[in-house]
Design a binder for these strands. Structure first.
Lengths: 147, 147
DNA sequence: TTGTAATAGTTACTTTTGCAACCAACAAGG
DNA sequence: CCTTGTTGGTTGCAAAAGTAACTATTACAA
């Protein structure tokens, strides 16, 4: 017999969060992979440009908390497949402005619809109140541990 | 102007879940990596054996929803580093029973403590009620979409 | 028996990632 | 101008993950 109550895996938030994140992402992942051959970093870049308009790689990285190498590769592949255009900033020639092409916009709109209805499906498992609580909790947990 | 309200990334549960999962896992990940050179699949196997005792790879896979190749590799590395032992079932020689060695138990206890205090740190960002709500919501979302 | 299918687990191959080093353009101080 | 540091972005290499195909063993039925 244990003298001490054990810490359970089912209580460990990072574990639970990962499980929920993984399984809840599966179906959507399949969609952007099958329809457009995209990876997670790629649809994220696509969505950022679709939602907020033209911006630089650094800015996407800051918003999405993605490392710049991931972005760099995602941008490369998206440009290669003509979902986005890259144009140098004339004042600071290190910088590139990224924007969706028509093809990119179409993909964005399509995936956006899929995401929306898929999200509705997920939310249907919870009450409105639960959804609100969940969002606010996730927001708090998404902040880095120190600071 | 858009005639239609846009679906936002901040409303998309799989996105939020992934963000929260990733950032909330970082610090713990660093611990098991730095102290024991483990990967995620490895500490998960370790914890399953530590919590529930001897079991087979298939059973761990079922409980943790991990693919068998992931488990196979995790088991291989854990055994190589003498955290676990593998013993063939005498009645069904396809099956292997996995169990922690003393070294494995020690690592488990150590990491278990870290996980517990780290979890407390995370939970401190939320009220008790929020934690309960969160757990129940995550549980509902961790179920596969169809069925 | 023998043939077919299921199950436990491993391996081979390809695609992704993670990290560090790197290049190019700018910035600021002397 | 020159040096030093910073920033935007890329690349090379090693580690890790995903997939499917594979071996070995058992189960079951003709």
């Amino acid at each position: 017999m244990n003298s001490k109550k054990h810490f359970k895996l089912q209580e460990f938030l990072p574990y639970l969060l990962n499980q929920a994140a993984e399984t809840s992402s599966l179906a959507f992942q399949k969609t952007y992979k099958d329809r457009y051959g995209m990876l997670r970093a790629e649809w994220r870049v696509l969505f950022h440009l679709g939602l907020y308009g033209e911006m630089t790689a650094v800015e996407i990285g800051r918003r999405a908390q993605m490392h710049k190498t991931k972005i760099s590769r995602a941008v490369h592949k998206l440009a290669e497949r003509r979902f986005i255009t890259r144009s140098r900033d004339l004042k600071d020639r290190r910088v590139e402005h990224l924007a969706l092409t028509d093809r990119g916009k179409e993909a964005y709109r399509d995936l956006s619809k899929v995401a929306e209805s898929y999200n509705a499906e997920l939310e249907a498992r919870l009450s409105d109140e639960e959804v609100d609580h969940l969002r606010s909790a996730l927001e708090k947990l998404a902040k880095p541990v120190h600071g």
